Deep mutational scan, measured.
Amino acid sequence: TYTWNTKEEAKQAFKELLKEKRVPSNASWEQAMKMIINDPRYSALAKLSEKKQAFNAYKVQTE
């Protein structure tokens, strides 16, 4: 089980997950979700809006 003390740690864990699963920077949210949804870190960020925000930040960083 994973635990995160801060929102920032949770966001980092979520981005690490995207990186580890090699989600391409041109992937849509739907494509990315299919690649990461079974990992416990997918739940790091509770709100869908937070997940999408972190995903978009990840995409910008990896382009």
Rank of each mutant, 00 (worst) to 15 (best):
L18T: 01
I37F: 11
I37H: 13
E30A: 12
N5H: 12
V23C: 04
A32H: 00
S43K: 14
R22W: 05
T3D: 12
S25R: 14
E63F: 06
S28W: 03
M33E: 08
A32V: 07
Y58Q: 02
A27F: 11
K52Y: 07
K47Y: 07
A57H: 09
Y2L: 15
Y42W: 12
A32W: 02
W29E: 00
S28M: 07
R41Q: 02
E50Q: 07
E9N: 05
T3V: 14
Y58M: 03
Q31L: 14
L48A: 07
E8C: 12
A32R: 01
E8Q: 08
P24F: 03
I37C: 13
P24R: 04
S25W: 13
T62G: 11
S49K: 10
E8I: 06
S25Y: 11
T3W: 12
A44P: 01
K52F: 06
S43E: 13
A44H: 03
K51V: 03
W29I: 02
K11L: 15
E30C: 11
I37Q: 12
K59P: 02
K19P: 00
A13G: 04
E16H: 07
E20A: 08
F55D: 02
S43Y: 14
R41F: 01
F14S: 00
T3S: 09
S49F: 05
E50T: 04
L45P: 02
T1H: 15
Q12M: 09
L48Q: 09
V60Y: 10
N26E: 09
E30Q: 10
Y42A: 03
E8L: 07
K19Q: 15
L17F: 01
L45C: 03
S49N: 09
R22N: 11
F14D: 00
P24D: 05
Q61M: 14
K59T: 07
E63M: 10
A57Y: 09
E30S: 12
K21Y: 09
V60H: 14
R41I: 02
E63C: 15
E16N: 10
Y58W: 10
Y58K: 01
P24H: 04
M33N: 06
E16W: 05
Y58F: 07
I36T: 05
E16Q: 10
K52S: 03
K7G: 06
K51G: 02
N26F: 09
I36C: 06
K7Y: 11
W4E: 08
S49P: 06
K21L: 06
